[in-house]
């Protein structure tokens, strides 16, 4: 995910949210809506990262937890927990995905000039999953690279991690497809 200049100043609108005790931000242009937590249907055999499905206005939408790939501690949802419904490019097409947040703060404007490249050492997150870091109200804001996170997920473990035994047994019937 790159930051697209969206106005003449080169600033972009970002939505800041809290996740695993950190402040993160994603482009507001990708955000469709913010929902109160809703009932999720667990998908048996799915990876923890995309463990379930929710109903968003008659559409079945996968619900994902960024804390899994980012290696953050996972705590039960608090009273400010929300679901951000976002458009995310997956396998070359736009996919609607719900993303869990501990709280959603506000839409703000961030000057890309003031965003820093991710330091290669000392970062808590896998570096390739972060597109930039910036500052917001004195706090460090991390911009996760959603496209990379989701692409990596599809390339890597394909959502079938917890049924590995069965996978191996059915290898012949279910070839990996590139």
């Amino acid at each position: 995910m790159t930051i697209h200049p969206e106005d003449t100043d080169g600033n972009v609108d970002l939505v800041t949210f809290r996740l695993g005790g950190e402040i993160c931000a994603v482009p507001a242009s990708q955000l469709r809506e913010v929902l109160e937590p809703v009932a999720m249907m667990r998908v048996p055999g799915a990876a923890e990262f995309v463990a379930g499905l929710i109903n968003v206005r008659g559409t079945v939408v996968p619900l994902s937890d960024l804390r899994v790939p980012l290696g953050m501690p996972r705590e039960p949802a608090g009273e400010h927990a929300r679901i951000m419904v976002m458009d995310i490019p997956v396998s070359g097409q736009s996919c609607v995905v719900g993303i869990l947040a501990d709280a959603v703060h506000e839409v703000t404007r961030l000057d890309p000039e003031k965003c820093e490249q991710v330091p290669t050492v000392g970062a808590r997150w896998p570096q390739r999953f972060v597109s930039a870091v910036g500052r917001w109200k004195g706090d460090l804001v991390t911009l996760p690279d959603l496209a990379t996170i989701f692409e990596d997920f599809l390339d890597g473990f394909d959502g079938r991690t917890t049924l590995t035994g069965a996978r191996r047994a059915t290898k012949i019937q279910e070839p990996e497809r590139a």
Binding site: M41, V43, A46, L53, I54, V90, V97, R160
Partner: peptide, 27 residues
């Protein structure tokens, strides 16, 4: 029948999902 997204389409046990009368999702 609602198709599963690419994030779940690798799970062969399910041919899709559907939305129930109470708004819940079933596989």
């Amino acid at each position: 029948i609602k198709q599963l997204s690419p994030l779940h389409s690798g799970l062969k046990l399910f041919s899709g999902a559907t939305i129930l009368g109470d708004g819940g999702v079933a596989l």
